[in-house]
Design a protein around this nucleic acid. Sequence first.
DNA 1: AGTCATCACTCGTAAGGACAAGTGACGTCA
DNA 2: TGACGTCACTTGTCCTTACGAGTGATGACT
Lengths: 260, 260
Amino acid sequence: MSEIQRPGALYQQVAAAIREAILSGEFAPDTLLPSEAQLMTRYGVSRPTVRNAIAALRAEGLIDVRHGKGSFVRSSGHPTLTLERRISRTSEGKFVMPNGDTWQEAEEPNTYRTLTTKTTGRLLQLGEEEALFGCDRLLIDPATGTRAMHRTLIPFEVAEAVPLLGEEPCKPPAAIYWVLTQVGGHALSWTETVRAHMPLPDERTALQLPDATPVLHVARVAHDADDRPLVLEELRFGADRAELAYRITADKQPTRRARP
Amino acid sequence: MSEIQRPGALYQQVAAAIREAILSGEFAPDTLLPSEAQLMTRYGVSRPTVRNAIAALRAEGLIDVRHGKGSFVRSSGHPTLTLERRISRTSEGKFVMPNGDTWQEAEEPNTYRTLTTKTTGRLLQLGEEEALFGCDRLLIDPATGTRAMHRTLIPFEVAEAVPLLGEEPCKPPAAIYWVLTQVGGHALSWTETVRAHMPLPDERTALQLPDATPVLHVARVAHDADDRPLVLEELRFGADRAELAYRITADKQPTRRARP
DNA sequence: AGTCATCACTCGTAAGGACAAGTGACGTCA
DNA sequence: TGACGTCACTTGTCCTTACGAGTGATGACT
């Protein structure tokens, strides 16, 4: 009966005690925590209080609870998949994404269709709710089992010049750059924007995410020589499975971006 | 009384109904949701069930609950601060981090001290629990109020060659690179690794994070000509306030990394 | 020996009641 | 008018009880 007293609510004291035990290593990773009943007698509180404490630890991603078995200390395993974000151009002018792209299609690819975007329109220099030409995919990395949601978005202005896009199913992620070069749209620079958010239920199921696992969201925009956006690629994946890696080399001069 | 039936548990049905109303725009952002009592009569369930549903929406980051007032639809405001991750070298050989570094010290800086790292040792090619020379900071962006935790880590092997580091307080983040050049440690490349995780309580309070807000974690490692790590900078901030932006330019040749 | 029912244990769901605590408006009182 | 107390409303905390559902081992039956 480790007596507890300190801060705020009872369940927070219980949560703090368990958390401390986990972080100090008293409860090792992948270890079974005491059951709810045991915690009730241990701290002299009711079951809702224990469950409330456990819910707090769950939201912090410290433990995993399995129905009928118990609560396990989550092994703070680092991501097993590192996505190297680098785009290179071969001498023939073809674009390759050389690494981190061992993705395979996990489902039958969709076809291009009209989409609207609230969150990423800004990156394409569009207003909110503006229509786009786009395609969704569910990708999987066979080596690690990591899943990712991929979306290609092309402004209508650009898509109209590319008759090939009407064909179905839509091209694999990397091919879109090649397609663009065929019609004279040469991407000169890419900007990647990285965000994180909590998954909605559809993302939770599609990406098979455990509790309290954020989604990493990468939006890659290709710009042409006039700094106008050509394509937007979105990639979402569970932050427990994969991480992003950028290699930065020192320029001789600071790069300046055009200011409209 | 919108009757509900479909999937799984009662509280999930209630949560799904509210979630749908939010995503469809029926409940506008920053709007007050019906109170718990109203939801009880609306769906004909008990208070624990309503609270359970609300807890689920809270964990998804869809709503904010304020004691004594009610539940508000969270305005899905995009991050206001964009951190441009680019390192440039001036012609004099001094290193500058030209953008996204309007940070100010939010607290009196600490002094360098010995730290151990479990999660990021790998990036420095060290084992787990290996000791390092390091310094923590709490930064703030005055324009947006965004807070960030910053940590500088230097392997003992490197730190021993730098007598300047013993001085207190420790240098501002960017200065460490300049210090290194003074003793012949020239950084040639940087690798940034991006992860996301849910905050522990200390991160929640230090960064002043709302519910269900992930932490974005950037680890920047500077390597010398022999590809040995010189410094590790860690930056953590709330994913609701800031995002990362990388500009990628197309190389003529794919970059190959040494394989040991 | 093998199969399968049972049981004890786990967590999940749902309801009920009671009181504490934060918030804001309203009305009283000085 | 101004200050303040009260009250109604909100969510927060905590307890009790009950049953459903997943898991694994035990043991009886074939």
